[in-house]
């Protein structure tokens, strides 16, 4: 991996984000929302509206508005929320940090379950264990989040009182309480992810176990455990890195239902609120920040991959 490759990749991320920003901006232009009306309310006078439009630059050509906005973005200023009047950037970044924490929690929990399941299914291919694993994962993937979330709430929180029902407590405030609040939503999300990651690990593992080098390792007299952990696992897990990185997209935007049910003020929830309120600066900022996170996570995954597999060399 060369420095020039890293520069190229960072440049490519900026390029991607530029295109995303254009699309987002174009979308907010099409939305039937008048920022001035949003701010002053339905009953505002035409004069007041016109004055505000002039003040906000809404009468300028679209591309001037875009340049004005993107210039602000480059300086870290995403604009002011039409709904709350607060600066949009810090609000969205804070929401993102909560979502990322939940995502990280879910991924760890998921890997903790999915990887052993996948390996077990591969090693016992065609046996009862294999079938049980695929049955469990198919059930998991076919249950919608709101069903599992409701069930979890009903039993774990309401009936057995094992975990706090909803809400979000920052880890910096009260670490263990914060963790307790994260367990249920993370479990609900990971049930969905376990299915396809464990299938992925299984099929990769099955392929790897059939390679010549695994046969060679066995014929060197290594024990089954040494062959599995020392030789097969690394190669079988490599593609999983890519899959998990792609899942981050789902974890950021697709878990709105879970965030709603458990009342976690994550970025998905913020975005829904912004859309409902036609809060254009918030929508723009939210989407752009999510896209940026997604790009960075996949970039990290690629670098991780090349560190684990020396054949992958970027130049």
């Amino acid at each position: 991996m060369s420095a020039s490759y890293l520069t190229k990749r960072v440049a490519l991320i900026f390029y991607t984000l530029l295109i995303v920003s254009l699309i987002v901006f174009a979308m907010t232009q099409i939305l039937p929302a008048d920022a001035a009306v949003m701010m002053l309310g339905e009953n505002a006078t035409e004069e007041a509206l016109a004055a505000l439009r002039e003040q906000m630059g809404l009468n300028n050509p679209v591309w001037t508005q875009y340049l004005h906005w993107i210039a602000g973005v480059f300086q870290g200023d995403f604009g002011t929320s039409l709904r709350t009047g607060l600066s949009v950037g810090p609000v969205m970044v804070e929401a993102l940090s909560r979502s990322l924490l939940l995502a990280l929690f879910s991924i760890c929990l998921m890997l903790f379950i999915a990887v052993p399941l996948g390996i077990l299914a591969a090693v016992r291919r065609g046996k009862i264990v294999d079938m049980a694993v695929s049955l469990i994962s198919y059930v998991g993937v076919s249950l919608p989040e709101f069903v599992t979330a409701t069930l979890a709430l009903l039993f774990l929180a309401d009936r057995w009182k094992l975990l706090p029902p909803t809400g979000y407590v920052p880890l910096t405030e009260n670490f263990w309480d914060g963790v307790a609040h994260l367990i249920m939503p993370a479990a609900v999300i990971s049930i969905i992810l376990v299915a396809h990651v464990s299938r992925m690990v299984r099929s990769e593992m099955v392929d790897v176990l059939h390679t010549d080098y695994i046969r060679a390792a066995r014929l060197k007299g290594l024990s089954s455990r040494q062959v599995l952990w020392g030789h097969a696992l690394r190669n079988a897990l490599l593609p999983t890195i890519t899959i998990v990185a792609l899942d981050v997209g789902y974890l950021l935007g697709g878990v709105i239902v879970v965030e709603e049910i458990f009342a976690i003020p994550g970025i998905g929830r913020q975005l829904i609120i912004a859309i409902q309120a036609r809060d254009l600066p918030s929508i723009q900022a939210g989407v752009l920040i999510m896209a940026a996170t997604y790009c960075v996570v996949n970039f990290i995954a690629d670098i991780l991959y090349s560190l684990l597999d020396k054949r992958i060399q970027y130049d």
Binding site: D212, Y213, A216, A217, R234, L308, K310, R311
Partner: peptide, 8 residues
Amino acid sequence: ATSLNPTL
């Protein structure tokens, strides 16, 4: 080429 593990 195939009897050696590519990642070790």
